[in-house]
Design a binder for these strands. Structure first.
Length: 754
DNA sequence: CTAGGGTTAG
């Protein structure tokens, strides 16, 4: 299916659509109190576990009845504040306590540990040592958990030594925590040694060891531990199945899942969740359905965690309606939300739906869901922000993207890898390469995805050399490129005509990085040769690599034939493509236009009829431009726009002026090149011309014009825009299906090579 | 110890 940036449903109802200031419109509130709203949401999310201000009441009571001077009462109050997550206040109280015992320390450390303030825990532990308070099992457990979260090997080992020196009895739980510290710090030797000396081992112990090896992707070793396990309970099965899945070995995971069923291991909630995850990462809807029906039979399909797993499964398998049904049921059930868990479930459900719509290309629904989310005052966390930015990127709605950027800055989210790359992508796809650079520099993280996003941004704007420079810099920085990186770089090469560089990178990928080229990489190479006009080499490449079964390869080849006007070859390529994908529109349009060029009108019409008979639909070309708070969209020959008369008369006048400085419309040339929009082109005007004309008459001179199009720009329009930019001294930026064109002083950033 | 939502390409 062709991917368009904008499905017609969104725009077609009216060619004029208001949708900027999306956030304000959605919530009906102003910029400033939006921030308040978010703050409120954050508070609500945290304090819901408590429900009321019980600590304050108790505190006041104890002060009033004078019992606060008792250590026990003070510890009780401390505990109340800690449990209700008023950690700052608890800490203050703790500091004011005239005397403390181990329990006081335990209460505070476990409180900080629970809320993830690990550094604080370690600080407290150090203070404890200074005050010579002997830690109990509970304190040690919290401290060890913090060590493992922070990968603080020195502290962990120190504690271990201290325990051994003082002859403190380690129970399994504590020993497991100790084991976990070593594993998280990557000290597998220490972990092994401890494991071998342990007298009691429970499931958790084995799980930690299996997890340790799965983390370093040593599945052999993990499986070895699994086989060694004397009595396997569900937990261990869960761990191994999940681990295999995470490491991308879904097949093996599935086999083990079946083995579980055969051995009669009873499933628990976690198992179902893992199984659903497996179904979605394999995109096997049937498996997901089976698990769903088992959940129903067991009567646990309403469990919050499992519901979100189900929603995700249906989203990933492309069944948005199914997901939506479960989602709506969730919404009904959690109308009265009290617990933290339920709130979390709700947030996860919403963000799953948003990301599901984005994943399935239904960006408008993603925006609508996001809007409802704001209305319902659901906390917008990093996950949903990432997804919604992706929707903005694909729809090209810069303003909403900027709003969200500003918004998350106010909330104070740090740009991590996910947020960073989605911002880069959003700015790049919305035409603001500078802003993308700014974000990239700001993140300063040696992460592949981040760098790949930036390389892709350069490629998108036709900066092939810059893309390669960044790629080389990336390697110099010691970041290992992945398959996607190579797709992006090769793409940059092909669009900038950097053939030699592309070939070198292709072999670098195979030989140095040991990445087996996939269909995407082959297609890039075919594009590289073909686009440069080396059509014979393209043919050779296809045969040499045995990739004639890939339709994407032939599609790319066909574009090259069209680009270089080699109709003979184009016909042959079309035949090959039609064999593989009879429903692809490319060959029909090409052949029909070929006939038209040779004035074989009847044959051309016949080809068109054949297309209709076979139900092959051509995506209509659409262009849109955003002026102030409105989006104006146009299709070819469109007369729906309120200013259509002005637009057309201006356009005719403009074309006449352009012809004076050398622009010409060669009917033959247009015919051959028209990819998507058919022969009527000569009578009407392509949508981008309309959008640009409207942009020019509606804005002051000197203001750059930004237009988006859902298809490729044809060469006549490209030429037209070049001359326009020269004549009017206007910068014109066009985003087409594949890339950006920056027109300035009569030339285009793509170097006429797109 | 093990389970749910996110980013890059075509």
């Amino acid at each position: 299916m062709r991917r368009t940036y904008l499905s017609t449903g969104y725009m077609s109802s009216n060619s004029v659509l208001k949708h900027t200031h999306f956030l304000y419109w959605a919530t009906g509130i102003t910029n400033t109190n939006l921030f308040e709203l978010q703050r409120f949401q954050h508070c609500r999310y945290q304090s819901w576990t408590v429900g009321d201000s019980l600590p304050d009441i108790q505190h006041a009571k104890s002060v009033k009845d004078g019992s606060l001077h008792h250590l026990n009462v003070r510890n009780y109050v401390l505990n109340l504040y800690t449990k209700s997550k008023n950690l700052d206040y608890a800490h203050k109280l703790f500091g004011e306590m005239p005397e403390r015992d181990v329990r006081s320390w335990t209460i505070l450390t476990s409180g900080f540990a629970r809320s993830g303030a690990c550094r604080m825990v370690l600080e407290l532990f150090k203070e404890m040592q200074v005050e010579r308070v002997c830690p109990n099992q509970f304190t040690l457990s919290s401290v060890l958990k913090s060590c493992s979260a922070l990968s603080d090997f020195r502290m962990g080992k120190g504690i271990h030594g201290w325990i051994l020196r003082n002859g403190i009895d380690l129970d399994v739980v504590l020993e497991n925590s100790m084991l976990d510290v070593y594993v998280k710090c990557g000290a597998l030797d220490n972990a092994e040694r401890l494991f071998e000396t342990m007298k009691d081992r429970d499931t958790v112990t084995w799980n930690i060891m299996m997890g340790a090896y799965m983390r370093i992707e040593d599945m052999e070793k993990a499986l070895e531990y699994f086989r060694r396990l004397p009595s396997k309970d569900v937990g261990s099965w869960n761990t191994i199945v999940y681990g295999l899945m995470r490491n991308g070995d879904e097949r093996c995971a599935l086999e083990l899942l079946y083995e579980m069923v055969e051995n009669g291991v009873p499933f628990e909630d976690v198992t179902f969740s893992v199984a659903l995850g497996l179904a979605s990462s394999l995109y096997v809807l049937e498996l997901g359905r089976q698990i769903h029906s088992r959940l129903v039979r067991r009567g646990i399909e309403n469990d919050g965690f499992l519901r979100t797993s189900l929603i995700d499964m249906y989203c990933k398998c492309g069944k948005m309606e199914k997901a939506s049904v479960i989602f709506k049921r969730t919404r009904l059930r959690t109308k009265s939300k009290f617990t933290c868990d339920e709130t979390k479930t709700e947030i996860v459900s919403w963000s799953s739906m948003v990301s599901g719509y984005v994943r399935n290309g239904e960006h408008e629904y993603a925006l609508l869901t996001f809007r409802s989310m704001l209305r319902e005052q659901i906390m917008v966390d990093r996950f949903s922000v990432t997804s919604i930015l992706s929707a903005c990127a694909n729809l090209g709605i810069l303003l909403l993207g900027q709003n969200i950027h500003a918004h998350i800055q106010k909330i104070g989210y740090i740009l991590d890898v996910h947020l960073g790359s989605s911002h880069i992508d959003m700015y790049a796809k919305c035409g603001s390469l500078n802003a993308a650079w700014m974000i990239f520099k700001q993140t300063n993280d040696p992460n592949v995805v981040l760098w790949t996003s930036m390389i892709s941004a350069c490629a998108l704007h036709g900066q092939g050399r810059e893309a390669i420079r960044l790629f080389e810099l990336m390697i110099k920085e010691g970041i290992k490129p992945n398959e996607v990186t190579f797709v992006v770089v090769l793409n940059a090469c092909s669009h900038a005509g950097l053939i030699e560089e592309g070939c070198n990178i292709f072999s670098l990928m195979k030989e140095v990085y040991g990445i087996k080229p996939g269909s995407e990489h082959f297609t890039c190479m075919v594009d590289l040769y073909g686009r440069a006009g080396r059509l014979d080499e393209t043919k050779e490449f296809i045969h040499a690599n045995g990739i004639s079964h890939l339709s994407s390869v032939w599609k790319s080849f066909l574009s090259s034939c069209r680009l270089h006007k080699n109709l003979e070859l184009g016909k042959w390529v079309s035949e090959n493509l039609l064999r593989l994908e009879p429903s692809d529109e490319g060959p029909y349009v090409l052949m029909s236009n070929m006939c038209a060029v040779n004035h074989r009108w009847e044959a051309a019409a016949q080809m068109r009829r054949l297309m209709q008979q076979r139900g092959i639909n051509k995506v209509p070309g659409q262009s849109w431009i955003q002026l102030k708070n409105q989006v104006h969209s146009f299709v070819m020959g469109d007369r729906c726009h309120p200013h259509s008369t002005e637009i057309y008369s201006y356009l005719d006048e403009l074309i006449a002026r352009l012809k004076e400085i050398g622009y010409s419309t060669d009917a033959k040339l247009v015919m051959q090149d028209v990819e998507e929009e058919q022969g009527e082109v000569l009578l009407g005007h392509h949508s981008e011309k309309l959008a640009i004309a409207y942009g020019i008459i509606s804005t002051a001179s000197g203001i750059p014009i930004r237009v988006m199009k859902n298809l490729r720009v044809c060469s006549d329009c490209h030429n037209f825009i070049k001359y326009t930019s020269q004549l009017l001294f206007r910068e014109i930026i066009v985003r087409d299906l594949h890339r950006f064109h920056h027109f300035k002083h009569g030339s285009c950033s793509c170097g006429d090579y797109w």
